[in-house]
Nucleic acid binder design. Structure first.
Lengths: 205, 205
DNA sequence: TTAGTTTTTTAAACAGTGTTCAATTATATT
DNA sequence: AATATAATTGAACACTGTTTAAAAAACTAA
């Protein structure tokens, strides 16, 4: 059935249009100032149509959050060539921070706002797959470090969560404008310097 | 003028009523589900009245955020009796985390949501005083640690921001439901264990 | 080509949001 | 008691996410 195929294709195309419009508006106007009507306006459809393609706004947020993880994963691909696990761990942090600060709205969506997690709760999805696989990737790198004798006296999972928390903490304080505790001229480089401080620490233990 | 005094007192009383109602609703319904009309309903006034006491919703958020800092500061008072700065630093982290998890809506208000920072921007307030003084308190404890020979090769400010980021990262990932990357049964204690991992690290450097 | 069926899309409505402001009510002063 | 001042309200405005009956479009079969 060629017609049925085309219909499926058309449905997918509109789904993409909605997500692309939403994504573009997130960057242009910010996450909070993007409404369903804004998205509908941009794709030149009535607002109602969106609810035939997505359950609610949270599902749109979740879908884009998933695409953010795909982008992050692809950025982390280059780490495969880094042999030394300690070097790889540090490079992972650098890429993570870079991703967060270059795509702060996307990072916000992935790791700060409630919407994508609310979607998981609403649909009774027990696991946050995207988060889990990212966490596992970090965990396995840290495991390799431990196998080489680093981080002695530490447990793998708490340590992994702690390291993730450190970089998340830095970028989320920056994104949510809590870095104004420091000299405004220095703010630009504070995250960089703080991450350097963290790398110094990691090397010592 | 007794009448003028009473008028001032009455104005202060209504201001307090508004803030108390808002605070109570934040805890009962959550930050996001509390509206100006909810607050007005609770104090049995019309919604319009609130705008004679506060510029906008952000100012209410900011005012309560300030009270959160007073509460946090008072909790940190006990640290004065801890002589050893390393012990004090670790105890500071413990109290900070406890405060955050016991008053997650208040923590959200203080360190995650945009509203109080938006208020500072709207009113052209250059400094985030509450954040700065909390940061300075942390900084001076870490300075004492460094004077005793800890954290060699580190710069004070980046290190301070890094340590803050670590605890902030842990609690904010928890508060915004990103801890579901771990076995649900372990989630309860993950922040505790991660902070233990951090303390082990601090002791080694 | 026409008639009937199915799918897609819309417009309007609902209940809510923050905010503003003219009109009203209450209080204080002369 | 009349006037001036301050406090409070209610309705309106321009939004928000979401639902749904109705209209439009597309497809199928005679």
């Amino acid at each position: 059935m060629g017609i049925a195929d085309r219909k499926i294709r058309e449905k997918e195309e509109l789904t993409r249009q909605i997500l692309d419009a939403a994504k573009a508006l997130f960057i242009e106007k910010g996450l909070h100032k993007t409404s369903i009507r804004n998205i509908a306006d941009r794709i030149e459809y009535s607002p109602g149509i969106i609810y035939h393609y997505f359950k609610d706004k949270n599902e749109i947020f979740h879908a884009i959050h998933t695409e953010g993880f795909i982008e992050l994963r692809s950025r982390l691909q280059v780490l495969a060539s880094v042999e030394n696990p300690m070097e790889r761990l540090k490079a992972l942090g650098t890429i993570y921070i870079q991703f967060a600060l270059e795509n702060s709205d996307m990072y916000d969506l992935m790791f700060i706002i409630e919407a994508p997690m609310d979607y998981l709760n609403d649909t009774n999805t027990p696991c946050w797959d995207e988060g889990m696989s990212a966490f596992d990737a970090l965990k396995s790198t840290i495991k390799e470090c431990m196998d080489l004798g680093h981080f002695q006296g530490q447990e793998l999972e708490p340590l992994t969560f702690m390291i993730w928390s450190t970089v998340h903490g830095m970028v989320s304080l920056k994104i949510r404008q809590r870095t104004n505790v420091i000299d405004p001229e220095e703010v630009e480089h504070i995250v960089d310097n703080a991450f350097k401080a963290f790398k110094i620490m990691l090397d010592k233990v």
